[in-house]
Structures are given as structure tokens and as C-alpha cells.
Design a protein around this nucleic acid. Structure first.
Lengths: 147, 147
DNA sequence: ATTCCTGCAAAATCTTTGCAGCTAG
DNA sequence: CTAGCTGCAAAGATTTTGCAGGAAT
């Protein structure tokens, strides 16, 4: 909520630095990735931009997300149902807690994460590069509604 | 490595208990899910069975995996590249450590897991039902080969 | 001026569905 | 016997690719 503007500008700058052109379509996609509160899907991004920019195509969204992913500036969140969501605010791996009823996504700070990473390295002798830690369940709001 | 036969029979029994017919195709799929050392893909299962059973169809593999998943007797492992692997030996959520070079999968025991689950519940007030904990990196074999 | 990008349509993947004939119980 | 299963082909869903015209630098 405070550093969204920074994220937007960081991504644009990185695109520039790597010799990519700054087109209006690209700007619109980056803006949504960097500023939207939720975790938008490709379809979400496409639909949202199409409102003000009727010629926008899905292929352009896919191509740009691929590009921004390759620069490490967006995180792809693969869901068990096969759909993907994107996070341009925190492009590094981090835990998610996802409500399977209302699809709300919470990003907790877990003190135990560092210790677990060490435990994984020690036990497996892998050089760990990234991870995916997602918890699925029912949020308190949905538990109340159910009764 | 010791209870594979048990897993095979547990799955068959569960199918019976739920009124599903035991066909040769179904048996072959369950056998691979319960006994294969790696984490086979749908394609792996299909190809392997097709050798001895030329009329086997992909649709049958998909339908049976869907069925066995719905009984909670196989775990689906979604990879970042979108492909899926299946684990009929340990059908409950558990951590994986995956080598991005050779695709080897290690299943570590993590003492820190219980504490992390508690931390997640406390911090988010979710009722956690299942999780996905996957670490990606380079295994020691691949690090040696690289030099 | 050039190079890269967009947008359309076609293709590629992966998975599901419909249905006729077959088979386990 | 008959409910459920298989296997084929067709349909869906999602993502990628090819290419011609257009825009950014």
C-alpha cells in the first residue's frame, strides 16, 4: 500500500535498462501488476485493460507477463485448479494462505520460515533457489457465514 | 518401499467400498500409482500401460486419476511449468524438494513443519485444510556434474 | 530508419466430455 | 441383467507462436 508506486517504477526502469520499449499496453499491464490489491489472473488483466483499450489482445498480456517474469519482477502463483495469478508487488517467493471458499489470499510473516529453509538444506544437501509455500483452508469470515 | 503393496491394496479396497468396478485398466493404473518409485505423470502412466495393453486410452487414465483423487488416495503435484505428477504412496500433503536440473524429487522429514502450521493458524485465523510445501534447487549430484 | 511490439488467427498442450459398445458384479 | 467403464473422437481451456502492419526510440 505504500511502495506500490515504487514497484511500478522499478519494473518500468528494469524494462528500459534491458532495452525493452515502453508501450502503452506494456504500461497498462505493469500498472495492474504493481498496483492491484488482489492477485490478478491473465484474464483479469486483459478484461480490465480492454475497458479503456479495446484493441488489447490476450497474447500481448501473455507475452508481457512472460517478459516481466523473465526479469524476475513478477511472481506466478499456480493454483491447484490450474489457474495462475500474478503478484508484482512481492516478486520473490513468499508464503500464501488461501481461502478455498472466497479465494482470499493472505500473506503471513512466518518466523519459522528461515529455520525450515535451513532444515531443508541440511537434510537434502540441495542448493535451494526458491520455494512455494501455500496453505489452503477456510478463512474466519467464511466460517462465520457458513453457520 | 515397504508398504507399497499395502497402498495398492488399500486403494483397490477403497474403490470397492465405494462401489466402483475393478477393471484391468483400473488395476494397472492403481498399480503404477502405488508402486512406481518416481512421481509419474499422466503421460508416463499411459505410455507404460500401453506397452502391454495397446487399447488403453489417455481419457481412461485421466478419468481414473480424477476418481482416485476424489477418494483422497493420490496426491497431485503441480509443477511450475504446468505439468502434474502423481503420488499414490503418500496421498497426504508433504514437502518436496525438487532438483530443477535432473527433476529428482526428495521428500524430507521436516521437524519445523508442525510449528509452521501452528504459526499459520495463529497468525491468519484460517482453518487450514491442506498445504503445498515445495522447495526447488540443485541437488548435490548435479552440482558435482556441473564443474 | 530500425528494431521491437502489437494484435489477430492459428497452433500447441493438456484435460474433459459425449456417447456407443462392452464388461464386471 | 444393468450400472458403470472404456476408448475413440470431439470439444474446452489455457498458453504459445507466426506474421504483417505499426509504434517507440
Amino acid at each position: 500500500m505504500t511502495d506500490n508506486k515504487d514497484r511500478y517504477e522499478i519494473i518500468i526502469q528494469k524494462l528500459r535498462d534491458n532495452g525493452h520499449k515502453i508501450t502503452p499496453q506494456r504500461l497498462a499491464i505493469v500498472k495492474i501488476l504493481a498496483k492491484s490489491e488482489g492477485h490478478p489472473s491473465v484474464e483479469d488483466i486483459y478484461v480490465q485493460i480492454k475497458k479503456d483499450f479495446p484493441t488489447m489482445s490476450l497474447a500481448t498480456v501473455y507475452k508481457n507477463i512472460l517478459l516481466i517474469k523473465s526479469l524476475g519482477e513478477v511472481l506466478e502463483l499456480g493454483f491447484p485448479d490450474g489457474s495462475n495469478r500474478y503478484d508484482g508487488k512481492k516478486p520473490y517467493p513468499h508464503p500464501h494462505v488461501i481461502c478455498i471458499k472466497c479465494r482470499k489470499i493472505v500473506e503471513p510473516d512466518l518466523d519459522s520460515l528461515d529455520g525450515m529453509k535451513k532444515e531443508v538444506s541440511l537434510e537434502t544437501h540441495f542448493n535451494i533457489l526458491y520455494h512455494r509455500l501455500d496453505f489452503f483452508g477456510i478463512c474466519s469470515d467464511c466460517r462465520i457465514k457458513e453457520r
